[in-house]
Nucleic acid binder design. Structure first.
Length: 437
DNA sequence: GCGATCAGAT
DNA sequence: CACATCTGATCGC
């Protein structure tokens, strides 16, 4: 399939159909209320939330895809003018409300773009998703998997969300006299808040725009904007800081909980050496974290093993809407793609999924790998540009046959000119600062 | 002055 | 480091 037919979460000129996996800002940059380029395909829940984020958007351009069934669209080859039939299926991505993966098939082959996704093994919802995917893949081998590689490193381990949610509840119940604030984004982590509300039989405070979102999602009696009704408040994550907590504690005893798969980084403040540990990597988070309170802070009561209290007022709980490393591995084993490409493209921390999972993919069977590496040295045009993981001091790269290359260029990979330029600029900076590599 | 874009911070 | 998002500065009209 040629370039310029389809874009997933990319909004540059030149495609005939655009696909939106979910409504987080990093997947909609470039998309505006004045959009007229072409139809946008998304899930029903995303379509419902869409006008709230993009007021005055011309809604006739939105196309809802129901989950789990094939939809056909007919595109036109820009070069030959001939019709190209494309089928697409949206599959629950278990990320935030409305988030889906897109599975495409056509004469070009079969492509799967996960968007952002979480692939938990045991929840009922996850089992359903697994069945849907297996059924869809029954007759199709995935040529290229575009993968949410956010946590594509074995050091990223965290429990299922159900477990993490209970940890949050346990923290709250162990602070019966405290106000609680929880840092969240504009979308996502609703299940966590529902779990808290159910377990403790309380309402949860949210800020007014967030309440509107909750209402659009169909939650009507659980959330409130009246501070007096509850001691648990979900606040915007960007407003959540040590200073915020220090300030709140001058009024009432308050603790903060930050739910994230990432270890939370605290930078020491000048002249304040009371307590601060930098959790620079989850590698450390499993071993030692201690404040003046010592180990009792580390494990509060029984099941709170991965909960970190890294400040007297702040707890970090590993509640993540992205897949951990082992879940990514499970997913790749299930899909068995010929090739994998990461969709998280932030400059310096990109990990090529093939670095860890190449051996699970058709194109990198050991027997072929050596052959391809030899070819690479000769500079064949089937080479995908290499990415470096300088932290590991290793270079990872992918090799595909020419036939595959055309598919690679198709989906989810063409970036806007701006982002290319920006990345190039950052690349220059990096090169200046860390030229040792 | 306004919207779009970018750097920087949380 | 990054998650996803905000603020404030700058750019182009």
């Amino acid at each position: 399939m040629e370039k310029g037919l389809i874009s997933v979460d990319r909004w540059a000129e030149g495609s005939q159909a655009y696909f939106l996996t979910h409504l987080h800002a990093d997947h909609t940059q470039g998309l505006t209320s004045t959009w007229t380029k072409a139809p946008i395909f998304c899930s029903r829940v995303t379509a419902k939330l869409f006008p709230f984020k993009f007021p005055n958007f011309k809604l006739s351009l939105l196309r809802v895809l129901d989950l789990g069934s094939w939809h056909s669209l007919s595109l036109v080859s820009p070069s030959t003018g001939s019709k190209i039939a494309v089928q697409v299926m949206a599959i629950d991505a278990h990320h935030c409300p409305g988030a889906v993966m897109f599975l495409f098939r056509g004469e070009f082959g079969c492509l799967l773009n996960t968007g952002d996704f979480r692939w938990e093994k045991n929840s009922e919802r996850a089992k359903l998703g697994r069945e849907t995917l297996l059924n869809a893949l029954k007759d199709n081998a995935v040529d290229v998997l575009y993968l949410d590689n956010t946590y594509c490193n074995p050091s990223y381990e965290f429990p299922p969300r159900e477990v993490a949610a209970q940890q949050v509840v346990d923290i709250i119940t162990s602070h019966p006299e405290h106000d609680i604030i929880i840092g969240i984004d504009t979308l996502g982590k609703e299940d966590l808040l529902l779990h808290i509300s159910n377990a403790l039989n309380i309402k949860i405070w949210v800020w007014p725009e967030r309440l509107q979102t909750m209402h659009l999602l169909g939650f009507h009696d659980i959330f409130t904007t009246k501070t007096s009704l509850t001691r648990v408040r979900a606040v915007p994550r960007y407003s959540f800081s040590i200073e915020t907590l220090e300030g709140l504690n001058t009024m009432r005893p308050t603790i903060g909980i930050i739910p994230s798969g990432l270890p939370w980084v605290v930078k020491p403040l000048e002249g304040d050496d009371k307590f601060f540990y930098s959790l620079l990597s989850s590698r450390y988070s499993r071993s030692k974290v201690s404040s003046k309170g010592g180990k009792q802070n580390d494990k509060i009561k029984g099941n709170l093993g991965s909960v970190k209290r890294f400040h007297r007022y702040i707890y970090s709980v590993q509640y993540s809407d992205h897949s951990c490393y082992l879940e990514i591995e499970e997913f790749i084993k299930l899909v068995q793609p010929t090739n994998v490409k990461g969709i998280v493209s932030s400059s310096s921390c990109y990990v090529d999924p093939l670095y860890y999972f190449g051996c699970l993919c058709g194109v990198n069977q050991p027997s072929q790998r050596l052959h391809h590496q030899h070819q690479k040295k000769e500079g064949g045009d089937g080479v995908v540009p290499a990415r470096t993981n300088s932290k590991l001091g290793r270079v990872s790269y992918t090799e595909v046959e020419k036939k595959r290359q055309r598919v690679v260029d198709l989906l989810g990979v063409h970036k806007s000119k701006v982002s290319v330029l920006r990345r190039a600029r950052r690349g220059v900076k990096l090169a200046e600062n860390e030229c040792s590599d």
